[in-house]
């Protein structure tokens, strides 16, 4: 019997090594360990083995069985591996580029706007929005800009014909004309009229000036404005906000300064300069970056806020100008051409 067992194990070894497919494997498995298999047949002879030899023979059979099983396992493993390998093509060249293009990019103006909004959100500002087609009231009258003010000239501001109608931009009075907003300050008025103080908003958006397009001017551009209305707001608070914004945006070596200026809707009013040594275009120069001031009492009275109770500040700046400074771009027109070689540089 021992000789028979050895022969079966040896035969199985040769046999199973040649097997490459699952059907072959199933057939071979049946031949050796199936109900009618050779090894099974030998095991069935155990009954005929004398009782005293049974432990020895049993051990031999078990050993043979284990050997055959291990050969079977190896064969199955080899087949499974071959099947997986068949799913693969040749090895890839990992250095070939992905053919899908991408990744997508945000426009630099979006990047700068979002960064400013993130910085301002940290100190409690939320982002507000308003229409780009505005009326004279929201763009000028409510901002203390009298009707004969040069900023309202048809030379500087885009107007619509007197009979123009815009279904979802309501006029404050029937005579006023529609226009394209010249600043995002109109959002301040809408926000103040809709709500009650305290208010802390940032309003980024597109604005329009009737201007020749050149390296620094564009018929439409973008502004970002902050408005804060509360009790006991001071010039010092305004300066603190500006210091915070530009230190967050440009780094700790950034300084800002105020120069007295004039805007109809703030009093006192300032222009804001900044300097940041690490910016190539700035270095030690003072660069004008925006305008600001304390909300004029007339503006508060116009929206029904008591100027004796409420005080506030407003700050506004051009986003293109800021982006040009941050990235070192020297022509505003690049923002509106959308050359992919430009767009891809900032994301």
């Amino acid at each position: 019997m021992q000789a028979q067992l050895t022969a079966i194990v040896a035969k199985a070894a040769t046999d199973l090594a040649a097997i490459n497919t699952r059907p072959e494997f199933e057939a071979a498995k049946a031949r050796y360990v199936g109900p009618n298999g050779e090894l099974t047949a030998l095991m069935k002879q155990m009954g005929a083995v004398p009782k005293e030899q049974r432990p020895v023979v049993g051990k031999l059979i078990n050993e043979a069985k284990a050997q055959v099983q291990s050969q079977l396992d190896a064969a199955l493993n080899r087949i499974a591996n071959a099947e997986l390998a068949a799913q693969l093509g040749p090895a890839v060249d990992v250095t070939l580029p992905a053919p899908d293009g991408g990744p997508g990019t945000r426009h630099p103006l979006t990047l700068v706007r979002e960064e400013m909004c993130r910085i301002l959100r940290k100190v409690g500002f939320t982002v507000a929005d308003g229409p780009e087609v505005e009326t004279e009231y929201y763009c000028f009258d409510a901002l203390n800009t009298p009707s004969d003010h040069p900023a309202r000239d048809a030379q500087d501001t885009f107007y619509f014909p007197t009979n123009a109608r815009f279904g979802n931009v309501a006029k404050m009075n029937p005579e006023e004309r529609y226009l394209l907003r010249t600043h995002t300050s109109s959002v301040q008025i809408r926000t103040m009229l809709q709500g009650q103080p305290p208010i802390r908003i940032v309003s980024p958006g597109r604005v329009y000036r009737r201007d020749t397009t050149d390296a620094t001017h564009s018929a439409n551009f973008h502004q970002l404005e902050c408005l804060y209305v509360d009790k006991n707001v001071t010039v010092r608070d305004l300066k603190a906000l500006l210091d915070y914004i530009f230190a967050s945006l440009l780094g700790k070596d950034t300084k800002t300064r105020f120069r007295p200026h004039y805007f109809g809707y703030t009093e006192p009013s300032f222009e804001v300069d900044l300097t940041a040594h690490h910016l190539p275009k700035v270095k030690k120069e003072w660069i004008e970056i925006g305008g600001c001031g304390m909300v004029d009492p007339t503006v508060f009275a116009g929206v029904g806020y008591d100027p004796e109770v409420w005080s506030g500040y407003a700050f506004g700046m051009g986003l293109e100008r800021l982006a040009m400074l941050l990235y070192g771009i020297d022509d505003i027109r690049y923002f509106y051409q959308n050359d992919l070689r430009f767009l891809k540089q900032f994301a």
């Binding site: 990019t105 979006t110 780009e132 329009y208 018929a219 439409n220």
Partner: peptide
């Protein structure tokens, strides 16, 4: 994978 553009209004 889209690239954002800004065009004149």
């Amino acid at each position: 994978d889209f690239h954002e553009c800004v065009n004149y209004t």
